[in-house]
Design a protein around this nucleic acid. Structure first.
Length: 482
DNA sequence: ATGTGC
């Protein structure tokens, strides 16, 4: 299948549509949120073919959607949103991704960039020492089976109960860092074993811990509500459920592929394997996915503990504590209520490389954010800007309350490695005041800024589409990578 | 993304 420009209709500025009539198996139209230039870039890979494939999944409603940072992924595009009818529509592990509850959080300090500049190199080294990173790497905490089950059930709350964090953090996390449908019994022993020493570790690839400063404020009222001010030093943490979530995805993709024929489901790409949510396999996967999501929230909480420890070691025990601004998941499926064609429906929203972005009035928000909308955290690539946005009510109308999740990959990892001289890049970043601490030059090359789309353009497109609005821009000062 | 691959 090939998709050409003439197959795409401009619905409005920044919203494009491949109509349902494009392919007989489509149940709904496929939509793209993008500027014209980004749309051209999106057409370079298989993202739109995958988007059209998603539009044929059983129970899919409204439209299959992609964000301006989209690129191709396993079956589903990364940067995609798919809502299926609950409880008899499809659930598909490929629509969530291998790194279940990969996500981002932002910690805010009371210090400004000028004040900490002279300690930056020391800080980046101390953070690198405190935060285990890299492929297959374990950390300090070894969970016994009972503790593992508690983590899978309680999520970030486990970190609070065990002295790694204060209770206040929980209010500042999507779903309070805990999904109630989790069932540890649905997670394989292999997955538990792989995760047993991985709490508090970032892993590799695009995962990182980064010290940034607030470079620009676009919306002073929202910024004040979120506790952001110009020049302020903040910390971005990007990671997920590590080997545990990966194993859950592996286990259930296999099981669901085998079970699919029993439900008479045929999909255009085997990587879209799915079953009805209310089938045995579907329910088991959902319970395991929720457990893996809880593991990821606990992981980001323990990493925050490590960052806070490094902070005290460098700035002294009585430095003002780092506060959690917010924590968002961007690889997850959630049961939500949405208005579709004038009808209120319960749906399972698959967000794969997409962030929840409900607007003002949304219930699951701390009270000081409720009139602003949900914070959306958009990390850029290494050495470029990141953004804090606020979800807008328009997202509830056109994107099932979702927004983009990053800059979006432009080059494959292999292509990036060919083009980038990592030691030179590391030096160049240091010259412009960004300290990179990485376990491997391979990781630096794969994550080089040229491997990514222009985050400024992606965020501008989001703002113009109306699904979220810009609150602040962040600039990096120090990066810890795997 | 991932103890990097049927």
């Amino acid at each position: 299948m090939k998709i050409n420009k003439q197959d795409i209709i401009k619905k409005e500025d920044f919203l494009w549509e491949i109509p349902q009539t494009f392919r007989p198996q489509m149940l709904v139209p496929a939509r793209v949120i993008a500027s014209e230039t980004l749309l051209d870039a999106i057409m370079e890979d298989r993202s739109l073919v995958q988007l059209v494939n998603v539009a044929s999944l059983p129970g899919l409603i409204g439209a299959s959607l992609v964000m301006p940072d989209v690129h191709e992924g396993y079956g589903f595009p990364i940067g995609g949103v798919a809502a299926t009818l609950y409880p008899n529509g499809a659930i598909s592990p490929g629509g969530i991704g291998y790194d279940i509850n990969c996500g981002v959080r932002l910690l805010t300090s009371q210090q400004n960039a000028e004040e900490i500049k002279f300690k930056l190199e020391e800080l980046s080294k101390e953070m690198y020492a405190q935060i285990p990173s890299g492929m297959g790497k374990g950390g300090q905490i070894n969970l016994n089976p009972k503790e593992m089950d508690e983590v899978l059930t309680k999520g970030a709350e486990w970190a609070v109960d065990n002295g790694y964090a204060d209770k206040e953090d929980l209010a500042y996390m999507e779903s309070n860092g805990r999904l109630d449908n989790a069932d540890p019994a649905m997670v394989s022993e292999m997955a538990k074993k792989r995760g047993s020493d991985q709490l508090g570790t970032i892993g590799s690839g695009n995962h990182f811990v980064e010290v940034d400063y607030v470079d620009e404020i676009y919306d002073p009222i929202a910024a004040e509500a979120y506790g952001l001010s110009k020049g302020q030093v903040v910390v971005l943490i990007h990671t997920g459920s590590r080997g545990l979530g990966h194993q859950v995805a592996t286990d259930y993709i296999r099981e669901i592929m085998a079970a699919m024929p029993n439900y008479g489901i045929k999909v255009p790409d085997r990587e879209l394997a799915c079953v009805p949510f209310n089938s045995q396999e579907g329910e088991n996967y959902f319970k395991a996915m929720c457990a893996a999501a809880n593991f990821a929230w606990c992981n980001r909480e323990i990493i925050s503990w490590e960052v806070r420890k490094a902070w005290k070691n460098v700035f002294g025990a009585d430095v003002d504590p780092l506060k959690l601004m917010y924590d968002v998941a961007h690889n997850i499926a959630k049961i939500e209520t949405h208005q579709v064609d004038g009808e209120k429906l319960k749906v399972l929203v698959h967000r794969k490389g997409a962030t929840r972005a409900f607007g003002p009035g949304f219930e699951d928000l701390p009270k000081e954010y409720k009139h602003i909308g949900q914070p959306v955290i958009i990390p850029g690539s290494m050495g470029t800007s990141s953004y804090i946005l606020a979800g807008a009510n328009r997202s509830e109308k056109i994107s099932f309350g979702s927004c983009c999740h990053g800059a979006g990959r432009k080059l494959s990892r292999t292509a990036a490695k060919k083009q980038v001289n990592a030691p030179v890049l590391k030096e160049k970043l240091k010259e412009i005041g960004i300290y990179v601490q990485a376990g491997s030059f391979k990781g630096i090359a794969e994550e080089a800024p040229i491997a990514y789309k222009d985050v400024d353009e992606v965020v501008e497109t989001i703002q113009n589409s109306g699904i979220a609005k810009k609150v602040a821009k962040l600039r990096p000062m120090a990066v810890v990578k795997g």
